[in-house]
Design a protein around this nucleic acid. Structure first.
Lengths: 337, 337
DNA sequence: ATGAAAGCGCTAACAG
DNA sequence: CTGTTAGCGCTTTCAT
């Protein structure tokens, strides 16, 4: 693997000139430029990123920190980010924080101080305000994805989860349901609190009372959904309508209800969250709250690169809304009572 | 952000000593070791990876190249890899080749020559033997995941896709089905050829003839499955049993059949591929060919790190078998005829 | 057990 | 437009 000195030697130019054609091609005569490019191609020269990184204190890479790599919604976000990064010639470090606060912090430290990433996208981060502040002090561009910005001067692309479940609950209410249940994800994530709060808000606006037996918390997964459904079925009565914080769990609930010969939506209406691909393939087709995950990724990345390319820009906060995908499981079209 | 010189100054030791406590803690007196560690902690010192990478020609990072980040099976692989890498203190570059040969090559070049990754895991790679050879010449540890090794001296963890569909087809045949169909993924991927070849082999062993109308190729997705199902339904007759190369497509086929009031498995039996989580939540529950994606990731990573830590080891080839998850859609338990 | 200094490959002054 | 060179932060001989 040749280095810049060998390219210089082979081309008859100096090291500085080679460096120039790489970094400022216009500052060099067209003639030398072409010659040098040709030689670089012939020798299959690729600049060493470590050397360049050391000299410029820049890595041409960004970090993406996800709470859970196996969650399809996060993956869609990742995809959007990778797309933009690739366009810009950046590579992305994939970090799975496993919803673990400590691990997120530890990774961040290595990434920022050690690897000198040029930017960071934190998806549904667990960081406290203080931690965010000290990250800011490192002067590395950040964007908070999925989470409302709580501190000044930071880019954020926020998904209005609360509004999403608010709308879903409202939809239930408008269809005449008065007894509502909620299955939430067991986690400390900000996102999950929000989902619940939107639900509660809708309920309060209609002075409907909440039956605590219909509020169940379990793992964000198929298993969690199954367990929650079983718990629900053990009670004396069922809610008329049920909002489930994630589609996989919602699908599991659907399945469980089906096995117990409880008709959806006739006996109990259901709405899920996330619009997982499969949700329209089940029967009844699952009504779900969709959020633009891919777009979230794209926007987060753009915001980040705006900041990287042009530090000092004013930071932005973008709100993204969810959409209620009305299908069959919510009993839309039923006669109100 | 302090550098090693400042730590040296603050501690009263030389730069060399600081470096030693970081890299060879035993080559230094216990006393200084403790002192220096403390100072490093106090100053929140983290070594600069670029400088270290430059000096050692090592990056403490590996590259993971995937054909499609949005495919759940690949993600499970990625997860396994990330787990091991994190344990070893490595970071992973996530690269989406988008099933694009050119892009895979280009990324590889930057990654190996530019970023000096310490190892590469190629999942279902599109690389030709020649390309693989020249990669080998760069002396960077490689493991081929998902794909049979075709060149000498390279680590590979291979999934026997062919055997998977062979077994599925055999299962169909043992249940008495004689008219079989196959919906395959439209792609140039090695994996997809294999799936088909296993199917063909099973058929040939029983001198069943193949009806070309029942062999359909479409996109590896829900949409592809839907289109394929429609095409099938437009024909005069339906096969008795259908093998579908991926679960999302299989689920779409199920749905489509259901809408057309064709009973599965009574009128047509179905087996999918990949064991997507949701496949056991639909009705009828989807029989599917599962492969150990997470394990594949784990093993690939271990093989890679064995090679990184100890170059010169003999390379290994590991075969992983699929498992036929028999559920309802294949008509298992029906009376043979 | 510790220190001094060369060198990893590249970029950006600075000088011509 | 091009060349010379210091220096980025770290590791590792080579001394002591």
């Amino acid at each position: 693997m040749p280095n810049i000195r060998e390219v210089a030697k082979a081309s008859g130019y100096s090291v500085a000139t080679i460096s120039r054609v790489i970094n400022h091609p216009n500052s060099v005569s067209p003639d030398t430029r072409e010659k040098v490019f040709k030689i670089m191609r012939d020798m299959e020269y690729t600049p060493n990123t470590h050397a360049r990184g050391l000299a410029l204190d820049k890595s041409n890479s960004i970090a993406l920190i996800l709470p859970d790599v196996l969650d399809m919604s996060y993956i869609k976000i990742a995809r959007g980010i990778e797309e933009i990064a690739h366009q810009k010639g950046y590579f992305v470090f994939l970090c799975n924080s496993e919803n673990n606060h400590e691990r997120e912090l530890e990774n961040l430290d290595m990434l920022v101080k050690g690897r000198r990433v040029d930017g960071i996208i934190l998806v549904n981060s667990l960081l406290s305000d203080d931690e965010l502040y000290s990250l800011q002090k490192e002067k590395v561009p950040i964007v908070l994805a999925g989470r409302k910005r709580q501190i000044e001067n930071t880019n954020a692309v926020y998904i209005d989860y609360a509004r999403g479940s608010y709308n879903a609950a409202k939809h239930f209410i408008s269809l005449g349901y008065r007894s509502l249940g909620f299955i939430s994800n067991k986690s400390t994530a900000f996102e999950d609190e929000e989902k619940f709060s939107g639900f509660v808000q809708a309920i309060n606006e209609h002075s409907i009372s909440i039956n605590e037996n219909f509020i169940i918390e379990d793992e964000k997964s198929i298993r969690g959904g199954t367990r929650a459904a079983k718990k629900l079925l053990m009670g004396k009565s069922l809610p008329e309508a049920l909002l489930v914080s994630c589609d996989p769990a919602a699908l599991a609930v659907l399945k469980c209800l089906n096995e117990n010969e409880i008709k959806v939506p006739e006996q109990i209406a259901i709405i899920g969250f996330d619009n997982v691909d499969i949700s329209e393939l089940v029967s009844p087709r699952l009504t779900t709250i969709a959020f633009p995950a891919h777009k979230l990724g794209l926007l987060s990345a753009r915001l980040l690169f705006d900041d990287i390319d042009n530090r000092g820009y004013e930071s932005q906060e973008i709100f993204l809304q969810t959409a209620l995908n009305i299908r069959e499981s919510c009993g839309h079209g039923r006669t109100k009572y």
